[in-house]
Design a binder for these strands. Structure first.
Length: 261
DNA sequence: TCCTATGTTGTCAT
DNA sequence: AATGACAACATAGG
């Protein structure tokens, strides 16, 4: 599910609920999401989360004892803070119980997400070949990473080593607003178009965060706003938004407004 | 029943 | 070294 804006919401939610709370207990309901790190997670009992950060779709949390936890959410992950006397939410895979009587569930329905600890964030980031976060990366870093690639622009935008945090919906949204068809080859785009992609990427991320990543609250001219279950009209020309497959991902674009380069 | 899904990773072939 | 096609992961909803 989550792309950068939604993960940023998870991070803020985590900060509001879990920081500074002594951890009483850590339960692993399903070891799969811990990727062999069950002991590292249960060892967080007695510690406290003190500071969080985000890099692309990943959240990192420092603890008082100097540990670092990471969380990635896959397609169906989120966090839920709840009263410990209540039942854990469905698909809760790891549960942190705090001394204050509340618990945080790391929920992952399809178990594509991963949670664990890292010795240092830099190592994790280089291990995953993550580029700078999409809201931090400079125009030069971004366009340099794109330039020279021989793929279509949509596939490249989804590549986390180009900019960390762009997901399937935002890639489509960026290309929709720059009027570039997702199948366009990078080599056919000029520098003005590359700059436009960079600016739109930042703008869309910021707007999505402003509306707290609530899809229906996006501006009327955003195609992501309308979801993907029914046929939608292009907010610009009213033609039907086409659905195709690009790089193995469902892709939405306006064949009239977006040109193939 | 069949298809799809806001993600990532590994394999195999080019 | 890059790129692409595709499967795998696990579950629900249309």
């Amino acid at each position: 599910m989550p792309e950068l804006p939604e993960v940023e919401m998870f991070r803020r939610y985590f900060d509001e609920t879990c920081l500074q709370q002594p951890i009483r207990d850590v339960q692993i309901a399903h070891p799969k999401v811990a990727g062999g790190q069950e002991k590292n997670l249960t060892a967080l009992a007695g510690d406290q989360f003190i500071k969080s950060s985000r890099w692309g779709k990943n959240i990192f949390v420092q603890t008082r004892k100097g540990k670092s936890m990471f969380m990635h959410f896959g397609m169906t992950g989120y966090l839920e803070y709840y009263n410990s006397t209540l039942e854990a939410p469905k698909y809760a895979r790891v549960v942190f119980a705090f001394n204050n009587g509340f618990s945080l569930a790391y929920v992952s329905k399809r178990m594509f997400g991963r949670i664990g600890t890292v010795t240092d964030i830099e190592h994790y980031v280089s291990d995953k070949s993550l580029a700078e976060d999409a809201l931090i990366i400079s125009r030069e870093q971004f366009t340099n990473a794109l330039a020279g690639k021989k793929k279509n622009i949509k596939t490249a935008l989804l590549d986390q080593s180009v900019a960390a945090g762009i997901g399937n919906w935002i890639a489509d949204e960026i290309l929709y607003h720059t009027r570039i068809h997702p199948t366009s080859q990078i080599g056919n785009l000029n520098s003005r178009q590359m700059d436009a992609i960079y600016e739109k990427m930042r703008e869309i991320m910021q707007v999505a965060i402003e509306v707290e990543a609530v899809r229906e609250d996006l501006p009327l001219h955003y195609i992501t706003r309308y979801g993907r279950k029914t046929s939608i009209a292009c907010p610009n020309c009213k033609n039907t938004i086409e659905r195709t497959e690009v790089g193995g991902r469902g892709t939405y674009a306006c064949g009239n407004c977006q040109e193939v380069y």
